[in-house]
Write a protein that binds this DNA or RNA. Structure first.
Length: 484
DNA sequence: TTTTGAGTTGTTCGA
DNA sequence: GTCGAACAACTCAAA
């Protein structure tokens, strides 16, 4: 039989619009799909706990989908540099395809692998499955990377129309796996045990390509109309909910882009042109994050603006822990942190509020927040997580100005006006009326007692006073003025 | 080289 | 209650 072509799946766990898979199928030779769980290659950041849970299910679904088309997925574990070349030799393959990644460690691993393969006469080809535009294709007029979103996105869009997504191959001629024994997803030990904290995630999410498409469909029917305003409402469901699916490549941004345009044209969605434009610009932020990461490999650890290297961050493990556990005494912050802990996801508006709170109210280094999100978010990816934390901390190039300090009470009253979001995630405040739910400490103990609440017993007192913390933050940021 | 206009998401204060 | 200004320069990107 003819030698097989490998498709190395990574963060592109889908069949549709997967150019690596399509290229392998197009060779007409048998296709061997492989997933390699690699915790050994140097420099790779290990997956957070929430992401591991998702990966388990995503691999299970992908394996089923591939098997149904005729090409079962081979799951292996180990260091790429050892396992993949050995596998290629073992099956007699001379061609391999994969989708590009954009983090420095991943790029280094892939580049070394590719040059090794090429030296051995093996065809190794990488494809763009993850982005609308490659990070190196958007530059200023003088060829420099972009540092500001608006001109970046203008330039990205000026490169022309987004390509249409390609359909999934109807059938894949799978390579025979005689003598090859792979692992089951469960062999990778990705699921939590003792305790199993994944109940809230199972309830909310359906990992896998079909789950991604169902989520997209529901969003286009119900969420997109009014997106411009309502996406800011954590008490409603007007965000796409696609972030973990995009993170693992279960759906491509090209698919989302065109499906949204089609939903407007066909009348499936009553969304306005503006709603569509805002949704597309959210995809634009995802692109911009990857652009920043590609051109700033240490984005997750190093201040984009090096002036902040001298910033007087506070060490405060107790405050950090209160923030992580949703016990800061600010209902909006605590609701967000508990939503994250339970579901592996947090509404975007609330991410800004909790991020601002950690960095500005508590003066804790943004990297501590980035670490926590990395471990607990299902959609944590090295580009968006780093770029977003740098943005909120004010350390990014195109960052929030230092005086932009979210007031968690005002934000709550504005974006969760009835208090429903807080009620859902902070049930001990559930009996408070909307007028109190974002600031319970303003009521007398007697009044709170009428609602079955005693601060300090049922729910914490505010960990810091907003006005005091705000002044402290402004003073701290002031110390950087004029620094080199 | 210099100039110019612009830059996701906010809050507070005082009129 | 509403509204505009101040918050502070600084950097980016293009002309």
């Amino acid at each position: 039989m003819s030698s097989p072509v490998l498709v190395w799946f990574r963060n592109d766990l889908r069949l549709a619009d997967n150019p690596a898979l399509a290229a392998a199928v197009a060779t007409g030779r048998p296709v061997l799909p492989v997933y390699l769980f690699d915790e050994e290659s140097p420099g790779l950041r290990s997956l957070g706990g929430a992401s591991r849970w998702w990966l388990h299910h995503a691999l299970s679904r992908l394996g089923e989908d591939l098997a149904a088309r005729g090409a079962p997925l081979l799951i292996l574990r180990g260091a790429v540099a050892q396992v993949l070349p050995a596998l290629m030799r073992e099956v007699g393959a001379t061609e391999i395809h994969w989708s590009r990644r954009y983090d420095a460690a991943g790029i280094a691993v892939d580049a070394a692998l590719k040059s090794g393969f090429e030296a051995a006469g093996i065809t190794a080809k990488s494809h763009n499955a993850a982005l609308l535009v490659e990070p190196w294709h958007v530059t200023t007029k003088v060829g420099e990377p972009m540092k500001v979103f608006t001109p970046f996105w203008r330039a990205a869009r000026a490169r022309g129309a987004v390509p249409l997504p390609s359909p999934a191959p109807a059938r894949i001629d799978g390579a025979a796996l005689e003598g090859l024994r792979g692992l089951a997803p469960s062999d990778l030990d990705l699921l939590p045990t003792a305790p199993d904290w994944s109940g809230g995630m199972r309830e909310m999410w359906t990992p896998g390509e079909a789950g991604a498409l169902a989520r997209l469909d529901a969003f286009l029917h119900e969420g997109l109309a009014g997106y411009t305003e309502l996406r800011n409402r954590p008490d409603m469901t007007h965000t796409s909910g696609l972030s973990p699916h995009l993170r693992f490549g279960e759906i491509s941004p090209r698919t989302v882009w065109h499906a949204a345009e089609h939903a407007l044209r066909s009348g499936v969605s009553a969304a306005s042109d503006r709603d569509l434009e805002v949704l597309q610009s959210e995809l634009g932020w995802r692109e911009f994050s990857h652009h920043l990461l590609f051109h700033n490999p240490d984005l997750a650890r190093t201040n984009f603006n090096r002036r902040f290297d001298a910033f007087p961050w506070r060490e405060d493990p107790a405050a950090l822990c209160a923030w992580q556990r949703g016990r800061t005494g600010y209902p909006m912050v605590d609701a967000g942190m508990r939503q994250l802990w339970t579901t592996g996801w947090m509404h975007n508006r609330v991410r800004m509020i909790v991020g601002s709170f950690l960095v500005k109210h508590l003066l804790i280094d943004w990297r501590a927040g980035e670490d926590w999100f990395w471990d607990t978010l299902l959609d944590a990816d090295p580009a968006a997580n780093s770029a977003s934390w740098q943005w909120v901390a004010g350390t990014g190039a195109d960052a929030a100005p230092y005086f932009r300090i979210f007031n968690p009470v005002l934000q709550g009253e504005k974006f969760d006006p009835e208090g429903d979001y807080v009620r859902r995630w902070v049930p001990e405040l559930g009996r408070l009326p909307a007028t109190l739910i974002h600031k319970p400490w303003t009521a007398s103990p007697e009044r709170l007692a009428a609602f079955g609440l005693k601060l300090g017993r049922d729910y914490p007192h505010p960990i810091v006073d907003h006005t005091v913390a705000r002044e402290r933050a402004l003073a701290a940021f002031q110390t950087l003025k004029g620094a080199p």
